[in-house]
Design a protein around this nucleic acid. Sequence first.
RNA 1: GGCGAGUUGGUGAAGUGGCUUAACACACUGCCCUUUCACGGCAGCAUUCACGGAUUCGAAUUCCGUACUCGUCACCA
Length: 550
Amino acid sequence: MTKEERVELADLLFPNLEHDRDYYEKLYPERNLKEGAMVTRYAPSPTGNVHLGNLLSAFADMVYARQSGGSFFLRIEDTDQKRMIEGGIENITGVLHDFDILPNEGYSFGGDYAPYIQSERTEIYQTYVKDLIVQGYAYPCFMTEEEIEAIREEQEINKTKIGIYGVYAVDRDLSLEEVKEKLANHEEYVIRLKSPGDGNKEIEVIDCIKGKMKFPEHNVDTVLLKKDGTPTYHLAHAIDDHLMHTTHVIRGDEWVSSLPLHIQLFELLGFQPVQYVHIAPITIKDQETGNIRKISKRKDPWFGVAYYDENGIPIEALHLYLATITNTNFEEWYLNNPDKTIFDFTFSFDKQAVGGTSFDEAKLTNLCKTYFSRKSGEEVYEETLSWALKHDSEYAELLLGNKEAMIQFLSIEKDGPRPRKDISKYSEVKEEFSYAIDSLFEKEHYAKNESEKEYDVDLIFDYVEHYLNLDVDNETWFNTVKEFALKNGYAASPKDYKNDPDSYKGHVGDVCEALRVMITGRLKSPDLFSIMKILGKDKVLKRIEFYQNR
RNA sequence: GGCGAGUUGGUGAAGUGGCUUAACACACUGCCCUUUCACGGCAGCAUUCACGGAUUCGAAUUCCGUACUCGUCACCA
């Protein structure tokens, strides 16, 4: 086809386009950002639930843009209307809010490069495709699905490269007359790239994480515009990221194999290339096979984003975990800088794992425990309350009704430099502090009693009634317990007992154990004296009665 | 099958030719502290970096081959 014929063809195919390329180039001018500022984007398609992998890449988008003084925007890739799910878009923005991974620009966030949703950009894509046709880099292809299928089967048998290229691209060199004829017959068509690539030549690609990679040049006539006139991912990516002036395309590494295509598209469209950052997927080692396998929603509940909310995993702790898998040196840095936040850390692409990153649940749990240990009792109370309000209204009410005492319980042994680490999730507070709220405690009625032993109720009752003084300090109190223990035939210290077990019934620890079980219903608890202080003598006595009548 | 990538302990991993008798963290085990638990302290936990070969005075680190794992090869993203 001559240039004139291509122009005619382009007009025939796209007669109603309002603008030309230049219009859009001017509409979306270069961003005015300082040197080194990164523009990143999270570009999900509303075809399913958001998972941890999505969150990880959005997190990376956010931190890189933020630390470099750039911009992080949200773009909705809804070009496949068939696969759209209801509420998919709201789900995406909702998750971003819930997890505090907020773009500063984009769909529902506003910005100068709108619309940030691909279904409203069809004209833009078509404008650029029209230009590609004029230049001889794209053409209408009338092949049917059956024809394409047949070619693929043949290619599979012959073990040649699969796809529409070279001799298989039968509509590549149709004459203008032939195209007109097919159009007149109302044959359906797609627009394909007329790839100028040579499969025998190599191109070198640099990825910010993976480094240099070599590929054969792209030479497949990939579909650019689908039958319905909407773009494929590849075309939309090139045009949008060019027009929106993305500097770094951060995405999952399932995309690396289409890199040669994307680079070719940028070239053909005359766009400045972008930097690619392919992040390794989150993987899981299967317990049974030992193989790395795909993450499955059923086997790996933590992969779904709802898991974190339902279990009450603090967002900040999750961020910490995402940061540790984003940069391998983050963990150590944070250990040495416990008072800093993720935004004080300088993330870099070369500290990002090249291979897959396994999800380490124990590590997340540990991060959570540290998180809770650093929060004051009051903070833990407030956060647990807002979690409970959403997930356990019954407990929320109890928390509301026992605010003061609850905060006191949650504050036990929090003061020192080495605070307790006993909670890892909001959902654990109820169980872990079941002794803190009377009605909860009474309801369970020692159901959770971990001890098989029978304790001497009379002994403990005697102690509480006649010796317990809650107005002293911890040390003084403990000395009186020792005295009491000794008076009743128990060693004042475990060491004394160890040295001479025959002269004693037990040691002071056994007395405490009995007291602890009667008061808290469990063998382990935070500092006993603090608990009793908060409860007050009356309640302590009541619990002993409870124990007796249990 | 083609193309691309990965392979270091129970786990996440550091490591870019000598400072590595392989960091750090989590987990686990033991001891200490101790009224329980948690915290904290100390100690233990890969003679070895998938396997084979090559380069080198020297290799987890470079090169080649093999195996395995992952990704991709749609009018899905």
